[in-house]
């Protein structure tokens, strides 16, 4: 005990650099944003007025906010399900490959190294209604591809681009998870006569559940925040708001409309939503997880 008392300062000193960074780049802006949510201010910050909860009321009263919330819900489910489902499929396949497995793994991990903005542009080039290679291919089979006007196609485009990006991240974790499952368990099951699907469903999947749970949390955060660049480089939230997610709306109101009060109120709401989702995930879904 006395030994620890003598070193009361040392742990703080060691933590200090990290704490300063977190305070400077996370807590300070977060508090500034929290404060801003209760004020109306002009773009140049020449004057501001306390308005209480008016910014929140204004945000929640607009139909566009709720539409963005709906879009976000559909988008999140599609991206999380797509990115995790495909990653699991590829991880299982890559785990079984005997020759050239390293090459497959590298190739499947690659998209994660691509910046979201670049990923958006790549997919936009392929799916551009006029110049895109894939649009021409689709036209040949009778599909009129126009992301400038078709809401479903536009949403599909951003979902595909986001799934492609996030899949790699999920793949790495699923593959690592798969490799940690003792071969003896699977072999024992095989000897007992369990087929590949049975083995997957009763042994592999439950043992992967901690990984899957972790990825669910991470994917939710990814979809809510990091897909911004993908949307900004492809559909700009259009057509007619069909791909405007909560974070994209927040950006538009803050940086295009320069309505800092509304934008801050939205970021506070979004922060609360993420916190709530994480709590729900830990409370209810984690119970199903077997460590």
């Amino acid at each position: 005990m006395t030994v620890f008392e003598r070193h009361r300062l040392t742990p703080w000193l060691l933590l200090a650099p990290q704490l300063v960074i977190v305070a400077l780049f996370f807590f300070w802006p977060a508090f500034a944003s929290l404060r801003q949510a209760f004020y109306v201010q002009d773009a140049f910050g020449l004057g501001e007025r306390f308005v209480g909860l008016a910014n929140f009321e204004r945000v929640l009263a607009t139909a566009e906010y709720w539409r963005a919330a709906g879009v976000t819900l559909i988008f999140s489910i599609a991206v999380a399900a797509g990115a995790m489902g495909l990653a699991l499929l590829f991880a299982v396949l890559a785990d079984r490959v005997l020759r050239g497995s390293k090459l497959y793994r590298v190739l499947l991990t690659w998209p994660y190294a691509v910046a979201p903005a670049v990923a958006g542009l790549l997919w936009l080039f392929m799916f551009d209604p006029v110049l895109g290679v894939l649009s021409h291919g689709l036209a040949l089979i009778g599909v009129h591809w126009n992301v400038h006007l078709d809401p479903t196609q536009a949403l599909l485009l951003v979902v595909i681009a986001s799934v492609w990006q996030q899949m790699s991240y999920n793949f790495v974790f699923f593959l690592a998870g798969l490799q940690m499952i003792p071969a003896s368990l699977l072999e024992a099951a095989a000897i007992d006569g369990a087929g590949p699907f049975k083995r997957f469903a009763t042994i592999t999947l439950p043992l992967l559940s901690p990984t899957a749970f972790f990825l669910l949390v991470m994917n939710t955060v990814y979809v809510l925040f990091e897909t911004f660049a993908t949307i900004d480089n492809t559909t700009l939230g259009g057509p007619g708001g069909a791909t405007r997610t909560l974070v994209y709306k927040l950006y538009e109101d803050g940086f295009v409309a320069r309505d800092l009060g509304s934008s801050s109120a939205q970021s506070v709401l979004l922060m609360a939503l993420v916190g709530l989702l994480t709590v729900v995930q830990f409370r209810y879904i984690e119970r199903q997880v077997q460590y």
């Binding site: 809401p151 057509p239 007619g240 708001g241 538009e252 309505d259």
Partner: peptide, 17 residues
């Protein structure tokens, strides 16, 4: 006005589709 242009683009897209 930059945001109003976005709003009008929204409206045109919703009318044209």
């Amino acid at each position: 006005m930059p945001q109003i242009r976005n709003i009008i683009a929204d409206a045109l897209e919703n009318a044209f589709n």
